[in-house]
Design a protein around this nucleic acid. Structure first.
Lengths: 214, 214
DNA sequence: CAATAACTGATTGACAGTCAGTCAATACCA
DNA sequence: TGGTATTGACTGACTGTCAATCAGTTATTG
């Protein structure tokens, strides 16, 4: 094949893009390195010039996703135009919109065959989000919305719970069990209020007020 | 090699035992089917006579573990010699003792290289334990210890949270960060009390009373 | 023009899974 | 009781696939 040299950053990007697309379409295990390189028309060796292993591209892909999540949450959390309740609601809204625009991705991450990826997410997400949530919760405590003895632990609990529950939510969504889906959503807010020691129903109240003002 | 015919149940058991031992020692990916059959001195084909794939033995192994957990919890939950608070404390005690007697297993399940297995656990455990926890929580509501609108969801939340937190607890344990470990334990009870709408500190109070009476 | 780095693609080694066939035990019949 | 048919446990060489390697080639840069 004719040889084309590109800016390393570009090439690396091409490889990650191709891998991401194929992993999403066919799964990690089912995608071969040969598939990835064929997609952009380079030799197999080129792949290994940029990545030490197949696993390493997966890391690069998840890092990209996690960076996106981090920036989205940080953007909401750092704003001083809203109180902590509003911020937390917006963060959940951000998660939900991310899930909707990337439905394939959500299904993918929860599929059994992609245990590998799911695991990477489970490791990285809490460590990135806990400090951000922690700050919002502490802000909420100062604002007297919340009353909680362990703000950092509360953050961790909320994050891991939401993550694990989304797993179960996803199975109900695939079975079109709307009743259970609604129950999970309602229960999630109910328990988050309890964990944070917030007034019962305050999240729903705020959420509908926020919707009305748009 | 000389041919020895055994009772199929025995042979199947031998294969599962050998696979479990090797998976625990070296990891799932790192163990080959050839290793498994070599260990008990049968041909590779024999393995595939009993299992459709390498993944299927892993299923058999996790099913065995999960059965053990289920029976342990069911035994505690069904007893009518204790109230719901005591039962829940005993269940957590059971988890902790399981973790101690099988330290290798716990570390193993949480190791990155065994994402596959971790995922299997995460799928199976909640579906098995939720009904059992649900009943204990409903019992506690009748006994006026708890006050919670969604008992089944509370069960689910507590189970997935405990599972995910144990993951994080494990990393602190490996780093010998005793402070964080204690904080997690205290926070876990604190938040479980909040989720269940129980009196603050009731679990600790009961736990120390139970210890005193032994 | 020398050094560096991007790139090639045939090759290797490891492994999951297959398959055609062997052998032992049991069941059935004369 | 002895002969034979059937079942299914068991064998192990073999295959196809794939991640990873490596010796070599081409472009770029100073």
């Amino acid at each position: 094949m004719t040889r084309t040299v590109k800016d390393p950053e570009t090439r690396r990007g091409e490889l990650i893009d191709a891998a991401e697309e194929l992993f999403l379409a066919n799964g990690y295990e089912e995608t071969t390195v040969a598939d990835i390189v064929r997609k952009i028309g380079v030799a197999q060796g080129t792949f290994y010039h940029y990545f030490k292993s197949k696993d390493e591209v997966l890391d690069a892909i998840t890092d990209r996703w996690i960076e996106e999540i981090k920036e989205g949450v940080a953007g909401i959390a750092s704003g001083d135009d809203s109180d902590s309740i509003e911020k937390i609601i917006r963060v959940f809204g951000f998660f939900s919109s991310l899930g909707k625009s990337r439905q394939g991705l959500v299904e993918y991450v929860h599929e059994g065959r992609n245990a590998h990826l799911h695991n990477k997410f489970e490791r990285k997400v809490p460590s990135i989000l806990t400090p951000l949530f922690s700050r919002m919760i502490e802000e909420g405590v100062r604002e007297r919305f919340f009353d909680v003895r362990y703000p950092e632990m509360a953050a961790l609990f909320i994050i891991v719970t939401t993550g694990a529950i989304s797993h179960i939510y996803e199975t109900y969504r695939l079975n079109e069990n709307t009743e259970k889906m609604n129950e999970i959503t309602a229960a999630t807010f109910y328990f988050i209020e309890r964990i944070l020691g917030a007034e019962q129903g305050i999240f729903i109240k705020y959420a509908s007020r926020m919707e009305a003002s748009t």
